[in-house]
């Protein structure tokens, strides 16, 4: 399997009235074709912003770090540097939708309310597949069928508000996939849905991903969802990745206190009578990022004098794993 996307040292800052804030700092991850990377973190941890940067969807006040690299290998095998394409250029438009597709949290708000589902699908199909109107319509119906929408030939002429929430998200998936992306970014696509429908949509996405052989970045705040869908996982906290590795291993044996906290916060069928253990404290505001390790303000194992002074580097305590934590850095140092 080949690396289709590699992000190195991504930092994103915004100029605001209160000065410069940097919600993403030194983020490194990669996606292999045919595999799913799960990005986990609380709201405000910078996971959405990072993926929006890939598609240059950030507002004009956003600035990328000087040594940030985002390299994407397209379907023909050409390497493309993301983040620096000219606005309005043909290449950028091809990347958006045609190479990288994006699904958002709110299916209702992702559709324009004044055009039919079919209209918006055909627009994408004609743009990226070069089909004529009639063929595009056929294709749209085929895609709607594929995502499990019954009576697709009639649904194609309906408006988004005429569909149920789960249907809308299916339609959104159909719309995004109809442009034929090689990489799919799904930004909390199931968060706004009912639990039963969540599971269906999740299954659908996993099946489609396997069938089409796409790479996928799945953003969520729910480690439980990661267990179901992701091959690899990256846990983000306050704009940095604190731990990454194969999803199964990270969940079975978390190395970072934050990951451990997140896992403890998941209700478990075996311990129904235990109280849930939330991660203590609140996520600090991005304007007041703590000095040192960003997590030290909420970490029970924080080493005073170390964690609150200097930021830890990424270390590899186990093969294939990476962690940013002084607990491991001191361990590996004392072992050395």
């Amino acid at each position: 399997m080949s690396k289709m996307l590699s992000v190195e040292n991504l930092s994103i800052s915004f100029r605001t009235d209160e000065g410069v804030i940097t919600p993403v700092q030194g983020v490194t991850f990669s996606v292999e074709s045919g595999r799913t990377l799960g990005l986990v973190g609380e709201s405000g941890s910078g996971k959405s912003i990072s993926t929006k940067a890939l598609m240059q969807l950030l507002p004009g006040s956003a600035v990328l770090g000087a040594d940030s690299r985002m390299t994407y290998t397209d379907k023909s095998g050409k390497e493309i540097a993301l983040g620096h394409m000219k606005h309005g250029s043909k290449e950028l438009r091809r990347i958006r939708g045609g190479e990288i597709g994006m699904i958002f949290q709110e299916p209702m708000a992702s559709f324009s309310p004044v055009y039919t589902i079919g209209n918006q699908m055909m627009e994408a199909i004609m743009l990226h597949r070069g089909l004529k109107k009639r063929e595009a319509r056929e294709y749209a119906i085929e895609m709607l069928n594929k995502v499990g929408i019954s009576n697709a030939a009639a649904r194609v002429d309906q408006y988004p508000h005429e569909l149920s929430g789960g249907m809308r998200q299916r339609a959104m998936i159909a719309l995004t996939l109809s442009a034929g992306p090689a990489l799919l970014i799904a930004d909390e696509p199931t968060t706004a849905l009912d639990v039963t429908i969540q599971a269906q949509v999740l299954d659908l996405m996993r099946d489609l991903q396997r069938e089409l052989g796409m790479g996928m970045i799945f953003i969520t705040h729910d480690l439980g969802v990661i267990a179901q869908i992701a091959d690899d996982v990256a846990v983000m906290y306050l704009g940095t990745i604190v731990e990454r590795g194969p999803a199964k291993e990270v969940i079975r044996n978390p190395q970072h206190p934050y990951t451990q906290g997140l896992l403890d916060a998941i209700p478990s069928l075996d311990h129904l009578h235990d109280r849930l253990k939330p991660v203590p404290g609140d996520i600090p505001s991005p304007t007041a990022r703590p000095k040192g390790c960003p997590f030290h303000t909420r970490c029970a194992q924080a080493i005073s004098g170390t964690c609150d002074v200097q930021e830890p580097q990424e270390t590899s305590p186990l093969p294939g794993r990476a962690v940013r934590c002084w607990l491991h850095e001191t361990k590996s140092r004392s072992a050395a």
Binding site: R93, F104, E106, S110, S112, A124, H128, L175
Partner: peptide, 24 residues
């Protein structure tokens, strides 16, 4: 979000402005 979504699927900016936000 619908504007961002349309942009994310590569709709040319001018067409996007006219078709989505301006129409509303």
């Amino acid at each position: 979000l619908s504007v961002t979504a349309a942009r994310a699927r590569g709709v040319p900016e001018m067409k996007l402005l006219v078709k989505y936000p301006a129409r509303l």
